[in-house]
Design a protein around this nucleic acid. Structure first.
Length: 452
RNA sequence: UCCUCGGUAGCUCAGUCGGUAGAGCAGGUGGCUGUUAACCACCCUGUCGGCGGUUCGAGUCCGUCCCGGGGAGCCA
């Protein structure tokens, strides 16, 4: 039966009959036969097929087999006499399942720019780099579940359609059926939007199940046009009951290290491609991140370090103002050269649900900054004291009546709890070294662009 | 949304001082070779992003719009 190329190359069943199915990457003809390289997506490497001119459809079909065509190849696996591959498949039969006109097929057997590949979004997973990204992304998703399930976390499917706007998390897409635009009748009886965060609902389950996580699509209607923002992205949000900011930070560090180690071990071939062609030294950088403790400094300390840095920043550092991108980059890329957890930000620049510290000026917030990406994780210990939460809501212009269910969590059996959000695409960017976030999600949605 | 740099053949790009366009790759044909970004020869390829303006004449200068890259803001 058909087997995947990954398995053929792993097991190398020399002398046995093997059938593979995939897409032609390239064909080279010699006097008496052709070399055809087949890729089936199971791994980065192609399988080299030897197609002898004695095959019945050689002259009319095989000799003209074009890049992009789909084929089923039956044959015998043999050791390769030449360098470049250990084994090769000597075909006894090649069925051309679907042709591809080389005059119009956009992918050529040469390197294309990522910008061009974005214009043919439906064909780009057939390239080496985007295929490798897809496999690494899939593995990271699997590893996320492994990490949390091994630690007894419960996965919660928080809603995609929500009626609560998690304050400070950006603009919401409105959800409506066409009919509602004219009248007052909302399908849900009130206005609804696509979720900007599953956090508030995750808190509901954390205060019943203990440790939970939610992992799903998230939507931001911001007009952001950068290499690290999407209108639709995937976010991982753990939420832990009986947990403070220190516990939160430790889980975040443990998670990142676990995910990096998992991918280095299980996607070695793809990671080697990124290391060679996308970001030189990537693997060494990730191994360093795994080996060293993350730096932890408070926001106040960070401001002091930045003031002493003597570097000229475009925007001045000032206690009470949010850190600029250039400041964050300085901390993780120049000063410490590793992931940095910055905690205890001024309350005035953070949302209402973050726990107010004893100084009354700062909140138990945490951002983890990573070289090359910036903020990859944002989280906090949550305000678990009813009265403090209520007054923080009023201060920041949130109507407590709208969040009565959220306040109930503090009225009945409130406990210290904490959590964070990890931008999944930013993680994939960090792991693969891909410069633009549009290359690490299969179908990127950005302002003015959602082709398929 | 703002700043900035771009848009020329299917792809990657060159195009001088304003004088109606060129290379490599891809594609086609033939040859050759256990090839592997195969090689050699020949052939084909254009709304110079759109619209308007200046000029005898615009790929080139000006205006404007669209699209893309980089940076900023917002954040994950």
């Amino acid at each position: 039966m058909d087997i995947r190329i990954k398995k053929v190359l792993q097991d190398q069943p020399v002398g046995q009959r093997v059938a593979v199915a995939g897409w032609v990457r390239t064909r080279r003809d010699t006097g008496g036969f052709s070399f055809i390289e087949i890729n089936d997506g199971s791994c980065l490497a192609n399988l080299q097929v030897i197609a002898d001119k004695g095959l019945e459809n050689y002259q009319q079909d095989i000799k003209n087999l074009a890049t992009g065509s789909s084929v089923v190849v039956d044959g015998e696996l043999r050791k390769s006499p030449a360098k470049g591959q250990a084994v090769e498949l000597h075909a006894t039969k090649i069925d051309i399942v679907g042709g591809a006109d080389s005059e119009t097929y956009p992918l050529q057997k040469k390197r294309h720019s990522f910008e061009f590949l974005r214009e043919i979004n439906h064909l780009r997973p057939r390239t080496n780099a985007l295929g490798a990204v897809s496999r690494v992304r899939s593995r990271l998703g699997y590893a996320v579940h492994n990490f949390f399930q091994q630690r007894g976390f419960i996965q919660v499917h928080t809603p995609i359609i929500t009626t609560s706007d998690c304050e400070g998390a950006g603009e919401m897409f409105q959800v409506s059926t066409g009919r509602e635009r004219s009248g007052e009748d909302h399908f849900f009886g009130r206005s609804a939007g696509l979720t900007v965060s599953g956090q508030l609902q995750a808190e509901v389950y954390a205060l019943a199940m203990g440790d939970v996580y939610t992992f799903g699509p998230t939507f931001r209607a911001e007009n952001s046009n950068t290499s690290r923002h999407l209108a639709e992205f995937w976010m991982l949000e753990p939420e832990m009951a009986f947990c403070d900011l220190d516990g939160n930070r430790k889980i975040a560090e443990e998670l990142l290290k676990y995910l990096l180690a998992d991918v280095l071990e299980n996607c070695a071939e793809d990671m080697a491609l990124f290391d060679k062609f996308i970001e030189k030294g990537l693997i060494g950088k990730l191994q360093d991140v795994i080996a060293k403790d993350f730096i932890h400094i408070s926001y106040t300390e960070a401001v002091e370090r930045l003031e002493k840095a003597g570097d000229k920043f475009e925007y001045a550092v000032r206690w009470g103002a949010d850190l600029q991108s250039e400041h964050e980059r300085y901390l993780s890329e120049k000063l410490f050269r590793c992931p940095v957890a910055v905690t205890d930000y001024p309350a005035s620049i953070k949302p209402f649900y973050m726990r107010l510290n004893d100084d009354g000026k700062t909140v138990a917030a945490m951002d983890i900054l990573v070289p090359g990406i910036g903020e990859i994780i944002g989280g906090s210990q949550r305000e678990d004291r009813l009265e403090v939460l209520q007054s923080r809501m009023i201060e920041t212009g949130i109507d407590p009546a709208e969040y009565d269910w959220y306040l109930d969590l503090r009225r009945y059996g409130s406990v210290p709890h904490a959590g964070f959000g990890l931008g999944f695409e930013r993680l994939v960017q960090f792991v693969t070294g891909m410069a633009n976030i549009r290359e690490v999600i299969p179908f990127p949605r950005t302002p003015g662009s959602a082709p398929c």
